[in-house]
Design a protein around this nucleic acid. Structure first.
Lengths: 124, 124
DNA sequence: AAATCAAGACTACAGATGTAAACTATAAGT
DNA sequence: ACTTATAGTTTACATCTGTAGTCTTGATTT
């Protein structure tokens, strides 16, 4: 497929779990999401169902229990999401965006060094 | 105010115009937005109206024509939007985000140097 | 003064989203 | 076999979004 399905903010949480660990059953997903959110199990089931409908995730049916897994690669998603964010908020200005993040986030000296290293690698 | 209103993607386009140039009349906004979008004038008027309702923008009424201007500062918005993006997509991992953007976007050597300078200043 | 135009207000309407309760069917325990 | 717990399905419902048409009213033109 070429066009990535649109994933809502809440659905993202489910995707992130599955990208991190799949296949997972819905109870596992519910279990883990309940730790960080206040969502009721049915809410999470709805999210799962919608992701299936959007073809963002699939599942294997092993005697009545579904094992869910992502159908779209994390990288593709992150890339697309990152691009649209950059465009929407910074009008595509990567440097402006970087500068802004450097200002609004607290960075330790170590972080700063690491970031410089990352930048250096790019300069090859 | 403490809680920023939620601004939709389309509404952002209006905000960006007003942050850049305000006050503006609706015809000016319509005029300028029509260049980059396919929105009908009424669509744009709806966006403006919703932003007023959300208290993201305000207006002065000068004999039947409204002059709109932002009620929330660009910086606050960008900051909040940036933070939630970082959290949602990169789980708050600034370094991961940087590395990823450097991969998918192009930065000139000069840009990289500038960013490193910013980092150095940060290190004070 | 009558007709017309422009700006804003009101109405519309389908699809997405957040949030969840109710229902169903099956597997498992007693 | 009967009850119960469980996973999945259906239904719900208000709000937000994208997208726009219609209506009203004061201003402008003839």
């Amino acid at each position: 497929m070429d066009t990535l399905p649109k994933i809502s903010d809440s659905e993202w949480e489910v995707m992130k779990l599955l990208w991190e660990q799949s296949p997972s059953t819905s109870s596992e997903i519910i279990e883990r999401l309940s730790q960080n959110t206040k969502w009721k199990p049915t809410t999470i089931k709805t999210l799962i169902r919608r992701l299936v409908k959007k073809k963002a995730i699939g599942f294997d049916d092993k005697n009545r229990t579904y094992y869910y897994y992502p159908l779209v690669k994390k990288e593709k998603f992150i890339r697309s999401e990152s691009r649209s964010f950059l465009k929407k908020v910074y009008d595509g200005g990567l440097k402006a965006m970087f500068a802004n993040f450097l200002e609004i986030e607290d960075l330790s000296k170590e972080d700063i060094e690491e970031l410089k290293d990352i930048l250096d690698e790019k300069k090859d």
